[in-house]
Amino acid sequence: MNLNRLCMTGLIGCAALLLLTAPRINASTPGPQPAGFGQDRDDWQRPPDAWNDMQRRGFHDGIEGAQKDFGNHRRPDVDNRDEYRRPDVPAQFWGAYREGFRRGYDVGMSHLTGANDWRMRAPERPWDAPPNEFDQLRRQGFQDGIEGARKDFDNHRRPDVNNREEYRHPHLPPEQREAYRDGFRHGYQVAVDHMMGGHDHDRDDHDHHR
Rank of each mutant, 00 (worst) to 15 (best):
R103Q: 12
N116S: 14
F59S: 08
D135P: 04
E147Y: 02
H201S: 14
E83R: 12
P87I: 09
R41V: 12
A115T: 12
A149S: 01
R102C: 00
A149N: 01
R57H: 11
L11C: 10
H186N: 02
D128R: 07
W118F: 13
P48H: 07
H186E: 06
H206W: 14
H201E: 12
H171T: 03
R24E: 10
R119H: 04
P34A: 15
F59C: 09
V161N: 01
D88K: 11
T21V: 14
D117K: 10
V107L: 05
D205R: 11
R164T: 03
V89Y: 06
Y84W: 15
A96Y: 11
M8Y: 09
D160A: 08
R46C: 07
E165I: 09
D61V: 01
G38K: 07
R5P: 00
E83D: 15
W118M: 08
H111F: 06
P131S: 13
D61P: 04
A15G: 08
P30A: 06
P170E: 03
C14D: 02
P34Y: 11
Y105W: 15
A96R: 15
M196I: 03
R164E: 13
R81C: 13
S28Q: 15
N162I: 05
L11F: 10
D160C: 04
D144T: 02
A96Q: 15
G148M: 01
A191H: 03
G31Y: 04
F134I: 05
H73L: 13
Q189D: 04
D79C: 13
G183M: 05
Q136A: 13
L172V: 01
D77H: 08
F70Y: 15
N163Y: 04
M196S: 09
L172I: 05
R102Y: 08
G31F: 03
H186K: 04
N72W: 06
D77M: 11
V89D: 07
D193H: 04
Q189F: 01
D182H: 10
T113W: 12
D49F: 05
R98M: 06
L3H: 14
G197N: 12
W118G: 05
D88N: 14
R203I: 10
R150D: 05
V192F: 00
P47Q: 10
V161A: 00
Y167R: 00
R57G: 15
W51L: 08
D79P: 04
D204V: 09
R75P: 08
G62E: 13
P174H: 07
N155S: 12
R24T: 11
R150I: 01
Y167G: 00
D204M: 07
M195D: 04
D53C: 01
H156D: 12
G187L: 00
G104K: 14
H206S: 05
T9Q: 05
R181M: 01
H156R: 13
R125N: 10
L17V: 10
E124C: 09
V192C: 01
D79S: 14
R5N: 07
D53T: 06
H111V: 02
G187Y: 00
A191M: 02
R121C: 02
I146P: 00
R150V: 02
D88C: 02
R157T: 08
A27E: 14
N132W: 12
N155C: 03
R103L: 09
L112V: 05
D69K: 07
E124A: 15
R81F: 08
Q143L: 12
Q189W: 03
R121T: 15
H209K: 00
G141H: 01
I63R: 11
N80F: 11
D128H: 08
R56N: 08
G95K: 11
G197M: 07
Y180V: 03
P123E: 13
M195I: 00
